[in-house]
Amino acid sequence: MKARPQAADALLALGLLVVGLPQLFLEELPEGADYDQFRAPDLWSGLLVVAVAMSLTWRRRHPLQVLMFIIGGELVMAVAGYPPAVPDVVAFLIAVYSVAAHRGLAQSALGGLAGFVYFLVYLMLLLPVSTSLPVMVTDCALVVGVWVLGRNLRLRRAYFAELEDRAARLERARGTDARAARIEERSRIARELHDVVAHHVSVMTVQAGAARRIIDRDAGSAREAMSTIEEVGRTALSEMRRIVGVLRTDRDVEQAGRELAPQPGLGDLGELLDHVRETGLSVQLWIEGEARPPSPGVDVAAFRLIQEALTNTLKHAGPQARAWVRLYYGDRDLTVEIEDDGRGTVTFMADNEDNQGHGLVGMYERVALYGGELRIGPRVGGGFGVRARFPLEA
């Protein structure tokens, strides 16, 4: 019925007629001089009652016109001397409510004033039965209360519609921020991969030049240089495959002339932890398994992951927090864990309620780029934890 409100209103009108028409023709009026002035209900009064009640079918689309039609129909019945019918009275109250609930302040105020004036005139002048002052005040208060109820419901609907619209705008803005963060992080990753691959190409160029110069007088050294070129070339090709699909921005072109030295890797982890300890954060490092050098891209990604996780710990964990960095070297993968025992679970989530953090987006992008897995969340016993698994081989 929500999808077809006019059909629901038609059923409402029919329900009023089913209940009210039998009462109109079967119930006898009370005895008394006042009630003797009413005409007995007949076919014409029944048709008027049906017309007035069925007009509620259009109460949402044309509420003010429906109210005026109902007032006109009841005036005709009052002038003709017919007694008030229950369907007409209920239809009048519903029409007053509909004007207040489905129209703006100007039309709803006009409809409410017209309904109140008509009801007051009907009680004082058109109704032959004498009405006491308390009953009159109560009936008028009922009309006013119905109008106020409709007005409040309209304002409430408008308030919830505004909340839904605001939530939709915030959701769109959040999606835009997340997309911008992904593009920014992918661009930064692409630049770092460019540096790694460029480094390999530089090594290949130097080795090829050396092999060309010594190939005539030292064939063994030349073959060794060729083997180095082959190995470095394969690594460079592997890293180039990682670049495919990474989005680039115009800013990458401007920064393409950066130095070709590779980015920091796990070999620089000690220096990173020393810098973190200088800030006052206690950090411990564990290395388990047989340490083996990962591919250059994974080396950079793991280092950046640890760097970002420790940066978040410094921001959110609190002054008395401690942190642990663990490296697990498996047969084919490298697992990196960064945990702390601070209060970062609450503050980090609160700070990122509206913006889910470009750092987190960067972590997911880096790990996903190398076919790894990432888990971020609260730590058992308090604090925050980051766990990532990288494949050692490209």
Rank of each mutant, 00 (worst) to 15 (best):
S295A: 14
L26T: 12
A40N: 15
M363G: 00
P319N: 04
G289A: 05
L369D: 05
P41D: 09
T228H: 13
V121Q: 11
D216C: 08
D34S: 11
T176C: 11
V121T: 11
R322I: 02
L269K: 08
A13C: 10
N352K: 05
V135S: 15
N352C: 06
D88A: 11
G377F: 06
S108D: 03
R188N: 06
E28F: 09
V50E: 02
L67P: 00
A33I: 12
V367Q: 01
R304A: 09
A211P: 03
V276M: 06
G175T: 13
E185G: 04
V146R: 01
L48F: 07
G73F: 05
F303Q: 03
R304F: 01
H199C: 13
A40F: 14
L269V: 04
M204A: 15
T235K: 06
G233T: 08
S108K: 01
Y329C: 00
V276D: 00
V300S: 09
T57V: 04
A323S: 13
L75N: 03
I189N: 04
P83M: 07
D9Q: 02
S45D: 09
G72N: 03
S130A: 14
F119W: 07
P262G: 12
L193D: 02
R179S: 12
G344N: 03
D341I: 03
D88H: 13
V18A: 13
F348C: 00
E162G: 15
L360Q: 01
E230D: 14
R157W: 10
Y82R: 01
E339W: 02
E28N: 13
R292S: 07
L16Q: 03
T138K: 14
R248N: 07
L17Q: 11
S55V: 00
G20S: 14
E74N: 15
I376A: 08
A225E: 07
A95C: 06
Y328G: 00
A350C: 09
R322W: 04
Q255T: 14
L48W: 11
K315M: 05
A180P: 04
E27A: 09
S132A: 13
M240K: 08
L93E: 00
A114L: 06
T335M: 01
N355M: 05
T176G: 12
I215F: 10
L153P: 02
V18W: 12
P30M: 09
L314A: 03
F38P: 02
R179G: 11
H358S: 14
V76G: 07
S202N: 14
T205G: 11
R251K: 09
L314I: 06
L56F: 02
L29P: 11
R304C: 06
W58V: 00
Q284I: 02
R387E: 07
P84S: 10
W286E: 03
V96A: 07
A40R: 13
R251G: 10
T235F: 07
W44N: 05
S130P: 02
A317P: 02
L281T: 04
G233K: 02
V206R: 15
R182M: 13
A222K: 11
P84V: 05
H316A: 01
R174D: 14
V50H: 12
F25D: 03
Y97W: 09
W58P: 00
E171S: 15
N152G: 14
G330W: 07
D165R: 15
V346N: 08
P264F: 04
E239V: 04
V283Q: 01
L105H: 09
D274Q: 08
G104I: 03
R103I: 01
E224R: 15
A261T: 12
V206C: 07
I338R: 03
V129E: 01
